[in-house]
Design a binder for these strands. Structure first.
Lengths: 151, 151
DNA sequence: TGACAATAGTCGTTGCAACGAGTATTGTTG
DNA sequence: CAACAATACTCGTTGCAACGACTATTGTCA
């Protein structure tokens, strides 16, 4: 056991304690997913983008990719650069509105995702499956509530 | 509203859905804290280290700092380098075991933390306070349970 | 005790993240 | 319709993160 990160100012900060639990848990669970993704040399962000693009085979504008991302990335351009260099996505300037650049997933990108699908699901089930459907739903509700007051 | 990141493979992955909620929530809540910390030019990691060292005025070995951190950092040396350069911590080689280097928080480091204490607490309360004590505790329990099966 | 392992930290390198400034295209309005 | 704003992206720069390889010190055991 490690962590505690308070001890001083034991002012009974239930909100901070919950926050720390949240960050810690996210970190611990992410680590396993990162291990899995590493077999394909993908970061979580890159994986996330590929999944977004798989869900939109007709392509998406960079801006739209950014909007749908889980963790906001202020520089999608270079993120897409790297994926394009590896042949996992393709880009093309739009004719109607020549400001926008459409990104599409390539067959190679789809193949990469497919190699990961089962392993990723297994990893998630392995980590969270023991909670059961009811508690997972409860957790989901609480997390959603956490984001309520974000201004 | 953004995010969804699935749509394909609607295989009803309750575990993955919970995972995404978790990461998303952690990201959203972190952002506010990062804003607050930015007023003192600190990253969450640096802030975390300072709080750890405040809790151990006699000093801690680098290794021990690493162990207590919320998010694991594989290169504590340079993290401490930067804090030392800014005068927020000090380091000194231990005499008993000359392999270890003790890190201590300096008065300047303490002052920095003190300037942040209230603002940080306010930020947490502002974001999570509306949940109430009961639901916060429930959330804490669920998050702890999430980390149970980590292998 | 002398060789080898274990521990503790440092440093080189690569690549990604964050921030801001810059460019190109389209929309708006006096 | 000309000027200005808004949009959509690109790029330069800085600094941090991740991964390994490396050095120094101590511990162990034949």
């Amino acid at each position: 056991m490690k962590r505690e990160a308070r001890k001083t100012r034991e002012k009974d900060n239930k909100e901070e304690a919950a926050f720390i639990e949240l960050i810690l848990t996210a970190d611990v669970l992410s680590r396993r997913l990162q291990q899995v993704l590493k077999t394909e040399e993908l970061s979580m962000t890159q994986y996330n983008v590929l999944r977004i693009l798989r869900g939109a085979p007709e392509g998406l504008a960079c801006r739209e990719v950014s909007n749908r991302m889980i963790t906001r990335d202020p520089d999608v351009t270079r993120l897409l650069d790297r994926l394009e260099n590896r042949g996992l996505i393709s880009r093309s300037r739009e004719e109607k509105d020549r400001r926008t650049v459409m990104a599409r997933i390539t067959p190679a990108g789809l193949a990469t995702l497919e190699r990961l699908d089962d392993v990723v699901q297994d990893a998630h089930r392995g980590q969270l499956g023991h909670l059961g459907e009811k508690r997972l739903k409860e957790l989901g509700n609480l997390l959603t509530a956490c984001r309520e007051k974000v201004g």
